[in-house]
Design a protein around this nucleic acid. Structure first.
Lengths: 218, 218
DNA sequence: CATCTACTACTAAAATATTCATAATATCAC
DNA sequence: GTGATATTATGAATATTTTAGTAGTAGATG
């Protein structure tokens, strides 16, 4: 289990490190949100502990990005004075929350709980189309199919919004970040490839003429 | 708006009742989780306010059940001492959260906010004519009918203005966006096709001679 | 450097929108 | 009511828009 700790305070990181190591977790650390995103993108992280107040990129934004890259559990840290932030976090998909100063023992308990909880739910299954979010794999009829990151992300995004027609712009702004000024139509190409890869499940991705696409489960 | 309050303390219920009534909401109450589930199953509840600590079935479990029955917003209540419970709620789809003791005014504000957030009014239902705005689908007698974008948009627009006669110009300027220099009469064709697609509901779209069209619900 | 991925441009195909001629219907003056 | 007139409905042909598919290039990755 690789756990990434993101906090700009050395003291905090060191305390958490000590406890994580004792508990047998693999420990990784960075000190701001941007590095965290990089880390998640390039390493096989299983859980992120994220401070809210950080330089470069705050915890909320980082959490959003992280969840977009890979749906791994995130536990947020915050100073007691930031109580209000709690609420705006509800929609970010935060998995747990703890206020500073916290007891390391409590944090460990929460990590265990979150990991356990996510063990069960980290799958999408429809007949024999299975998506293992943790392993980043998709299989059809028991056979793993290989998707590119874009294909995988689009699939997950459509599934997350299943039965909802999603516009190309929406997909772009959610999966490309905010810096893509290219052609909408690149989505079509990804969708085409995705459909081909999905084989007999290709028609779960419906085109909504004049709007975009939709993952439809009856 | 029917709001269900689930709490085993009479005092709390009464306070909330008083405020909800003032605000013009319809108030319903039960005192434990099991009753709450029953209530949601059999009544048209729009929002649930749910205490965490309750006899019979705790708030967390009740919330999970409720969300499974019907996707209505849930606001959780908890005593300050129950801080721990906050966390495990994150994955239950809780819409908001407030700790006791709370100011009724704040609770009202949250209710309003949650209702607004959830009120995308994403369905239109008349007998077995159903429009799923999110999914961009229309079904009659349980069967999905396929509408072109223009047909769909016109239908939605007429429904949005139901029982009001809408001129062709009005439709054009609202749904075509760009300045359309073609023939008004293209609307007639769309209406014709729309009516055909609506099958037994074709006559909900009435012709208002000399004016335009109207979606009429008696 | 070799390979995989993302993107773009272009063409084909499909779906949709519009026009137009004609039939049907409503409205109104009488 | 009747007929003249205006308005709407319909069917079919045509134009336009949108999406799918193809292929190639740029760019990233390892």
């Amino acid at each position: 289990m690789n756990i990434l700790v993101v906090d700009d305070e050395d003291l905090i990181r060191n305390v958490i490190k000590e406890y994580l190591t004792i508990e047998g977790y693999n420990y990784l650390e960075v000190s701001d949100g941007l590095e965290a995103i990089d880390m998640v993108r390039n390493n096989n992280i299983d859980l992120v502990i994220l401070d809210i107040m950080m330089p470069n990129l705050d915890g909320m934004s980082a959490c959003k990005e992280i969840k977009a890259i890979k749906n791994i559990p995130v536990i947020m840290l915050s100073a007691r004075s930031e109580e209000f932030d709690k609420l705006s976090g509800f929609n970010l998909g935060i998995d747990d929350y703890i206020t500073k100063p916290f007891s390391p023992k409590e944090l460990m308990a929460r990590i265990k709980a979150v990991l356990k909880r996510n063990d069960v739910t980290d799958m999408f299954v429809y007949e024999d189309l299975v998506i293992d979010y943790k392993g980043h794999t998709v299989s059809v009829e028991g056979k793993e199919i290989s998707l590119t990151p874009k294909e995988y992300n689009i699939l997950c995004y459509l599934i997350k919004n299943k039965n909802i027609a999603i516009s190309r712009e929406n997909i772009l702004s959610n999966l490309w970040g905010y810096s893509f000024f290219g052609d909408d139509r690149t989505i079509d190409t990804h969708i085409k490839k995705l459909r081909n890869n999905l084989g007999k499940y290709r028609n779960l991705i419906q085109t909504v003429h004049g709007v975009g696409y939709k993952f439809e489960l009856k």
